[in-house]
């Protein structure tokens, strides 16, 4: 059993919130640069250049890449031999969010009640999913999720007969209908299988995968490549102004499902594809 003071969680989460919002991952930057080389539309190229310029300015100014610093979403892999001391884990994590969003001059974008819509003022509560794993370490992944792209996401309970063709049609139609709303170029997270809720969760987890990585199963790796090619033939382009770079990547995650079910989820992510992680 390893003891871990929750104060360490607070400090780590505070820094994750700031870093995730200020620094874009190297994998995203690399793909943006590749896209700039390939983009046919002059306006599209201008947009991609400005997006890359923004990455540098954010770093230099220690300012958030996007004003929408998102809902604070966390994935925690908790080693079963960890014993937290000094207080409540969940409270400590939320305190980290509170401090990070304040000290990092990040926007507070959470309302306490979906109907009444009053801002909580500190971007809490966070959304946290915890997986219990072997070991005595804690991995915390922070992924701020912007509203513009989240709003273009969807879960569909399809008939099993729809098959892989049904998945393709759904994903491509979803990207087409989203147009400029999710700030393209986008990363498309696709969840196939599981239950209604599991499917949405794996679609979100798909967004955390490194851009340029392929699904370990060749069938799904090919599906990812085919979907990316088709999405980039839609012509939406950077910011929807027309062009060949509509998506930077399509990531698919799958899960076993019920004999009667075929859930498919699409979680859209903008080019500000943010996530940072730490292991305590």
């Amino acid at each position: 059993m390893r003891k871990l003071d929750v104060k360490e969680v607070t400090a780590a989460v505070r820094q994750l919130c700031i870093d995730a919002n200020v620094y874009l991952g190297d994998d995203v930057v690399k793909r943006l640069k590749q896209s700039l080389e390939r983009e046919e539309s002059p306006t599209g190229r201008e947009v991609l250049k400005k997006i890359l310029e923004n990455v540098d300015i954010a770093k230099e100014d220690q300012a958030p890449l996007c004003q929408d610093t998102g809902y604070a979403v966390f994935f925690v892999e908790l080693g079963q031999d960890v014993h937290f001391t000094g207080g409540d884990f969940s409270e400590a994590l939320n305190e980290g969010v509170r401090q990070g969003y304040k000290d990092g001059y990040l926007r507070k974008s959470v309302v306490s009640d979906p109907i009444e819509r009053k801002n909580t003022g500190d971007n809490t509560p966070a959304i946290v999913s915890i997986d219990l794993v072997p070991g005595d370490r804690v991995k915390i992944i922070m992924a701020p999720k912007g509203g513009g792209s989240e709003n273009m996401s969807e879960v569909k309970m399809m008939a099993p007969a729809a098959g892989v063709e049904g998945v393709k049609d759904f994903v491509i139609d979803k990207v087409r209908r989203s147009g400029a709303n999710p700030c393209p170029p986008v990363v498309v997270g696709v969840g196939i299988g599981g239950t209604f809720d599991k499917c949405a969760q794996i679609a979100k987890k798909a967004l955390l995968r490194e851009i340029g990585s392929r699904h370990p199963n060749p069938f799904y790796a090919d599906l990812e490549a085919e979907l990316l090619e088709k999405v980039n033939k839609l012509g939406i382009g950077p910011q929807g102004f027309g062009g060949r770079t509509t998506a930077l990547a399509v990531h698919v995650e799958v899960h076993p499902c019920h004999i009667a079910s075929f859930p498919v989820a699409v979680n859209m992510q903008c080019h500000v594809s943010r996530h940072k992680e730490i292991i305590l």
Partner: peptide, 12 residues
């Protein structure tokens, strides 16, 4: 249309 997500640049 302004560039969504290029907000550190936008502030300038």
């Amino acid at each position: 249309g302004a560039i969504g997500g290029a907000a550190a640049l936008g502030a300038q």
